[in-house]
Amino acid sequence: MVAIVVTAVFPLVFVLLILASIFGIDMDADDVMDGGGCSPIGGVDMSAWDATFTKAGVLKDKGDKIKEVATKQGIDPILFAAIAFNETGWGTSRAVVEKNNPGGLMDAATGMSTVKVFATLDEGLEAMGVTLHNRIVKDGLNTVEKLGAVYAPIGVANDPNGLNVNWVPTVNGMIQKLGGLSMNCSTTSAGTGQYIIPVDTPNVSSGFVDRINPVTGVPEHHKGIDFAQPMLSNIKAADDGVVVFAGMGVSGSGFGGYGNVILLEHAKTKEWTLYGHQSGILVKVGQVVRKGDVIGKVGSTGQSTGPHLHFEIRKEKMGGQIDPAPVLGVQTKN
């Protein structure tokens, strides 16, 4: 009971890639995939579940325990299992093998400087389940992207090698292998038809206007609006949609100059939204996102003079931009 109370207070620290270097975790390149998606049967696909657990190391026989804890805590067993596999390198890390700790939970008794030791693996899974309940149910971090943005943020000081970018696609890959999510998941992505402002503190630095390009010095029509933002602040999906492009906008791609850019397709409005100049992209092509999901981090890549989000609303996939300001209800300065 003491361990469970402690983990309810201190958040889960997802440190797979740090543990990989410290504890010798072995991860396959095949584990990194596009979005995990939903279970086609609307529940746990037991054939996929059982097949995936055969390679799960010391977690191999813990499928029933994970489902039991997930039911008790009101969380998706698929998500629980995928995160456990991620944290332990398929049940092979020293933390889970030697300390019965499948969730990377730190020990408050040592000032959170060491990984907590549990008497049994079942006890470790119970503690991990409580902490996941707190994050998913209480805090509302009910998607992989929301969890990743909190637990493996991109660009933070304790991730100097930029490894946190792998967390979301790796967990999604494991979800896919397990047969797809069985909770908080929908195969539809039509959207609501009402966009939200894609940043938390909107400060429009350039509007949908004719101007001199600040990088090239050439007159142009600015095809979106720019939100000046702190570096690495969150970029949110303006509505439900599907990722149709996510990557560096190189010359010839149709997205040259945008730097790291995401394009979402919104079926309800038959429109697309574009998010440019990002420092880090948290989604993959084909992934379904929900309104408000954190999809990237503000940066200054591509043709940019400082950290900001370039945001567009398009009537066509590769053009037909309209002024986002009246749609979002924001005022522009120029």
Rank of each mutant, 00 (worst) to 15 (best):
N86H: 08
V288S: 01
F23S: 14
N164W: 00
A56G: 01
D64Q: 10
A51N: 15
Q194I: 14
M183K: 07
S21E: 15
N234S: 03
D30Q: 13
S93Y: 05
G257K: 00
Y258R: 14
D107V: 05
A20I: 02
V6R: 01
P214L: 04
P160D: 08
P230Y: 02
L232R: 06
M183N: 06
D210L: 10
D200L: 09
P202F: 05
A20E: 09
L274E: 12
A246Q: 10
V204K: 08
I295M: 06
L282V: 08
A267I: 10
E145S: 05
T332D: 02
Q176R: 15
I225D: 11
G217C: 15
N203F: 09
G252F: 03
V156A: 03
Q287C: 09
I281M: 13
T131A: 12
G319K: 13
G43A: 15
I212N: 08
D30S: 15
K297N: 09
L79G: 09
N142I: 08
D28P: 14
G257Y: 01
V2K: 11
N100D: 10
V6N: 02
G259K: 02
V289M: 04
W90G: 06
G257A: 03
I262Y: 09
H277T: 02
V32R: 07
A29E: 11
G42S: 05
F53M: 12
D200W: 04
S21G: 15
E126Y: 11
P11K: 01
I175M: 11
E145R: 11
P324E: 06
V199K: 05
T305Y: 00
D293Q: 08
G37N: 13
V283S: 06
F118C: 13
P102V: 13
S39N: 06
T92I: 03
M112H: 11
L274H: 01
V330Y: 12
T114N: 10
G306S: 02
T7I: 00
S93D: 01
V327Q: 11
V156K: 02
M128L: 13
F85P: 00
P153K: 00
P307T: 06
G252E: 05
R135S: 01
Q303K: 05
P160W: 10
P230W: 12
E312F: 15
G280I: 14
M106F: 14
F245L: 07
L16G: 10
S205I: 07
G129L: 13
S21A: 15
A3K: 08
T170S: 15
H133S: 08
V165H: 01
T192L: 04
V2G: 03
V96H: 04
V2I: 06
V171Q: 07
V69D: 00
M174P: 00
A81E: 12
T305G: 01
T301H: 01
W90P: 10
L181I: 03
H277R: 10
A149Q: 07
M1S: 14
A157D: 14
H277C: 10
N184E: 03
P11V: 08
P11H: 07
L163G: 04
M112W: 09
S206G: 08
E123C: 03
D323Y: 05
F227E: 09
N158K: 04
D34G: 10
H310S: 02
D107H: 10
